[in-house]
Design a protein around this nucleic acid. Structure first.
Lengths: 149, 149
DNA sequence: CTTACTGTAACTATAAAAGTTGCAGTTGCG
DNA sequence: CGCAACTGCAACTTTTATAGTTACAGTAAG
């Protein structure tokens, strides 16, 4: 199952916005520069975050993006859910199995339940870290091994 | 995110083998019939399970597959690890971000740690259910709503 | 009215998975 | 021996998702 790297992009962008929050709006181009990526790609992800109320954009010249709530209140799970709506980490059968076989008749719902429980465990773990936590970790690491000048 | 439906096929096949254990070897064709799938596809998955010591094959006429250990000792996690080696449920950046940005410098390792922890939580949940558990559930369900004759 | 943004559609390229065909190797049995 | 029933595996096609790009319309500041 597969999940894309959109969650990584989303979390990166959110942390970037948290870091430069006092400096005002940040453009998708700036964020793309930090990601070594494309502004359109970034806007696609930011658009999903916007639809979920995590960030909000300002259009027009001098516009850009900012967090829609304190970084303390945004978890990795919020980002994940926004950019991977309805994702199934462990897909079940691609097509229904043979109904004349005992296993075939009963396996799909049982597997769905097991896989959903596993995915819930993963998502629970993602709720335990906020963007603010991540930003603090970034700053702690930067203090330990600063950039070469 | 992405993981294939191979885990579903693997678990289905293992449960099938557990169900017909007393009847002796089961061919990939029989298992494929239960999955409404292709024997080659099934053999591909069974080959991975074999490489991980979960099942073993007998070649030649009258050959087939059987569990290599009691169904009680095989967990969904064993199946998952066998058929999705090195899977990363939540991929990080596809390419390294900008090293001249604080976020870019420190995000990848932090994200890897977070995502790995989340994946570990998922995998932990998978260890909690065995093939024997699943087979019991199948039989319980069959008792409740038997196949139409 | 120009410049700097967001918003979005439409496209290409790439990679992974699902599914199929074909065939070589092995073994039981008549 | 020779056929039939298996596994093992390479090679291929099809399908789908993602990453990335190009192009352009809409909006707002100065």
């Amino acid at each position: 199952m597969a999940v894309s790297s959109r969650t990584a992009v989303a979390v990166h962008a959110l942390t970037f916005l948290a870091q430069w929050e006092r400096e005002g709006l940040q453009s998708s181009a700036k964020i793309a520069e930090s990601l070594e990526s494309n502004p359109v790609l970034v806007r696609r992800v930011l658009g999903l975050l916007r639809d979920n109320g995590l960030v909000y954009p300002v259009e027009g010249s001098g516009g850009g993006w900012q967090l829609a709530m304190p970084a303390e209140q945004i978890t990795l799970h919020d980002a994940y859910v926004a950019v991977e709506p309805g994702a199934t980490v462990l897909p079940v059968h691609t097509h229904p199995p043979n109904q004349s076989c005992v296993i075939g008749r009963h396996m799909p719902p049982l597997l769905e339940a097991e896989f959903a429980a596993a995915q819930r465990a993963m998502e629970d773990r993602l709720t335990q870290t906020s963007i603010a936590d991540l930003l603090r970790s970034v700053i702690r690491r930067e203090g330990a091994t600063p950039a070469p000048h």
